[in-house]
């Protein structure tokens, strides 16, 4: 037990470069597998949270764009949604990496007035940025389709009532469409978020190379399966972690769902839960 504590100190943050540099090579214990794979999960959570957060806002823009009368706004939104929903993530990662390595490797400085940020195009070929960008577009496209569907199914009575009160334009969107859209889309959006967290495990697996043996949960599972030649321990450990992660996501989104539906009576709430059954 105490040795497992030492393992946790050595490898608990190994995936982000803190702790022992050399990974365990021989006489690998179950503890080492659980700790390192758990350490890799930090990356899955990082990719998931950032992509869902930024992807959410972009998806709203795409959804509104797809619903817009103006072709100039509609067609780009539709194209992004079509390409990212229509092709496998596996292939998207491949193309993103191949494209990013072609970019000239330079440093760019952003002058924000009060602070100067410097960035390097080199970062785009790293999973933490390049992979994140793909996931961002991916989740934005999927969520946009969900929100688009929700916008279309906001009861027309609500919109007519709003117009009768003289609520139009942005105000109509924010005060009438927005809350209903979120409420209607939320169960599907929960599914999308779960899928996105699952999709994070593909980054190191297919698209982006791992640097300094820092990777996600699946990367370490792969490493152990390779060192111990026994796939039946590390992969189920990853599966366990993901089940836990999924339960947490379901809980958080469930709380949000309750908040969104707080004005409805219990019976109607239940109905919403099941009437929309759209996976990804």
């Amino acid at each position: 037990m105490s040795s497992c504590w030492a393992t946790l100190q050595d490898y608990g943050l190994r995936s982000i470069g803190i702790g022992e540099r050399i990974l365990p090579k021989t006489d690998i214990t179950i503890c080492e597998q659980v700790v390192l794979i758990g350490s890799g999960l930090i990356w899955n959570i990082y990719f998931g949270i950032i992509a869902v957060f930024f992807g959410f806002w972009f998806s709203i823009i795409l959804a509104v764009g797809k619903n817009h009368k103006l072709a100039l706004l509609r067609i780009p939104s539709e194209s992004i949604i079509f390409v990212f929903r229509g092709s496998p993530l596996f292939i998207q990662f491949f193309f993103a990496y191949e494209f990013f390595v072609l970019l000239p490797k330079v440093g760019i400085e952003f002058d924000l007035g009060f602070i100067t940020l410097s960035a390097e195009t080199r970062w785009l070929t790293r999973a933490w940025l390049g992979g994140l960008i793909v996931l961002f577009f991916n989740t934005a496209a999927y969520s946009a389709e969900i929100f688009y569907g929700a916008i279309r199914s906001v009861p027309s009575g609500e919109l007519e009532a709003a117009e009768a009160y003289g609520i139009t334009g942005w105000s109509k969107f924010w005060r009438i469409i927005w809350p209903s859209m979120l409420r209607l889309a939320w169960p599907s959006y929960t599914n999308e978020a779960i899928f996105l967290f699952h999709a994070t495990s593909l980054i190191f697996f297919s698209g982006f190379p791992a640097w300094r043996q820092s990777g996600d949960a699946l990367y370490y599972a792969n490493y152990f399966s390779d060192k111990t030649f026994n796939p039946f321990l590390p992969y189920p450990i990853v599966a366990m972690y993901f089940i836990l992660l999924t339960l947490v996501i379901i809980f958080i989104f469930g709380v949000a769902n309750k908040y969104l539906n707080r004005h409805l009576d219990v019976e109607q709430r239940a109905k919403i839960q099941i009437s929309i059954n759209i996976l990804r």
């Binding site: 540099r21 050399i22 990974l23 090579k25 297919s206 190379p209 791992a210 640097w211 300094r212 043996q213 792969n222 390779d226």
Partner: peptide
């Protein structure tokens, strides 16, 4: 390449390893 003896050698040599499938 991931999982090769060269990969472990690079780690031990102190250099920065990048792994490809």
């Amino acid at each position: 390449q991931t999982g090769t003896i060269q990969a472990s050698y690079i780690v031990d040599s102190g250099a920065t390893l990048v792994e490809f499938a």
